[in-house]
Simulated scan of single mutants.
Amino acid sequence: MSKDHIGELEELVLLLIVMLKEEAYGLAIRKALSEQANRSVTIGAVHGTVNRLESKGLVESSMGGATEERGGRRKRIFQITSAGKQALEKSRDVKVNLWQQIPELNIKNA
Results as ranks from 00 to 15, higher is better:
Gly72Ala: 07
Gly84Ser: 05
Glu69Arg: 14
Gly57Val: 10
Ser61Met: 01
Phe78Glu: 00
Ala66Ser: 12
Ala83Tyr: 07
Val94His: 06
Arg76Lys: 14
Ile80Tyr: 02
Arg92Ile: 10
Asn97Ala: 15
Gly72Phe: 06
Leu58Asp: 07
Ala83Thr: 07
Glu68Tyr: 04
Val94Asp: 08
Val59Cys: 09
Gly71Gln: 02
Val59Asn: 03
Trp99Tyr: 13
Glu69Thr: 13
Thr67Ile: 02
Glu89Arg: 13
Glu60Val: 13
Phe78Cys: 06
Lys90Tyr: 01
Arg70Asn: 11
Met63Cys: 02
Leu88Phe: 07
Ala87Tyr: 00
Arg92Gln: 12
Ile80Ala: 04
Ala87Asn: 02
Glu68Asn: 01
Val59Arg: 09
Ala87Phe: 00
Asp93Asn: 14
Asn97Glu: 14
Ile77Glu: 00
Ser82Asn: 08
Gln100Ser: 15
Glu89Ile: 12
Gly72His: 01
Lys90Ile: 06
Arg74Trp: 00
Glu69Cys: 03
Gln101Asn: 15
Asp93Lys: 15
Glu69Gln: 12
Ala87His: 01
Gly57Met: 06
Phe78Ile: 03
Ser82Asp: 10
Ile80Phe: 05
Gly84Arg: 05
Val94Phe: 08
Leu58Val: 09
Arg70Gln: 09
Lys75Glu: 08
Glu68Met: 04
Val94Lys: 14
Ser91Lys: 14
Gln101Arg: 15
Glu89Pro: 01
Gln100His: 13
Arg70His: 06
Gly65Tyr: 09
Ile102Met: 15
Val96Glu: 12
Ser91Met: 03
Arg76Met: 05
Gly65Glu: 11
Phe78Gly: 02
Ser61Val: 01
Gly64Asp: 09
Val96Ala: 14
Leu88Trp: 04
Ala66Trp: 01
Gly72Leu: 05
Gly72Met: 08
Gly72Glu: 05
Glu69Lys: 14
Gln101Met: 15
Phe78Ser: 07
Glu69Asn: 06
Arg73Trp: 00
Arg73Phe: 00
Ile77Met: 09
Leu88Lys: 05
Ser91Gln: 07
